[in-house]
Amino acid sequence: MLKIENLHAQIDNKPILKGLNLEIRAGEVHAIMGPNGSGKSTLASVLAGKEAYEVTEGSITFLGKNLLELAPEERAGEGIFLAFQHPIEIPGVTTTNFLKTALNEIRKYRGLEPLDAIQFLKLLKEKAKILQIDESLMKRSLNEGFSGGEKKRNEIFQMAMLEPRLAILDETDSGLDIDALRIVAEGVNKLRNPQNAFLIITHFQRILEYIQPDFVHVLYEGKIIKSAGKELAKELETKGYDWVKAEAVAGA
């Protein structure tokens, strides 16, 4: 589904990603862990198409297309979804209006008829139930005055509505209490199916107790230096990153 080869990316002429390789197939859940400043959020931003990041080398192929040639909205149309680490507050745009516009724009991109108001509301209610979202939030301005937990839950709710092929969760777990984390994780688990994939970027293995990954990667200084199964997350939790770094240095 997604193939990243030798990806180099920089912001303000400062190289962040320095030769990253990653392949994700349909049905898989990948977790990327790593210390602060290793490039985790940069990877998420580059995948979503944030213009401030410049790709200087390498390639990203998504479902056979060169992702780097696509605008952010086209990537969403292709099925990429980024759950933001810091969701943006947009006063004056209601969540409902925003989601209806987004959903129908994506449908248009895929050559589908737009949903009418009734079909849309039905879908909205169905998905709100899964994420245990209070429907009164939908009438409020997007994320405005939402608590940290509400914002994160709203991200996963948007994901449920837009049904992406590849969802990237950028530190969705940070700032969530245990109940909110469980709801978010359950939401993700309900949306998991053999046709889609998830990339979970996190500092902590806590979320991975609820969402079982197929692969865990360690990102360090802009490269993936170790990949293994879900047991790696627990090992990192108890032992920290230093031993992986040492291994990588020895290997290099």
């Binding site: 944030k50 969403a76 004056g92 745009v93 925003f98 987004a102 724009e105 991109y109 837009l162």
Partner: peptide
């Protein structure tokens, strides 16, 4: 116009023109 908000909308599949329009209307709405 708030670039972060613009990117947020575009990342959800909303074309740049429509996203700009949404943000301007939201600004005016107050």
């Amino acid at each position: 116009l708030d670039e972060a908000a613009l990117f947020y909308l575009r990342s959800r599949g909303i074309s740049e023109t429509i996203a700009r329009n949404l943000l301007l209307k939201a600004f005016a709405q107050e």
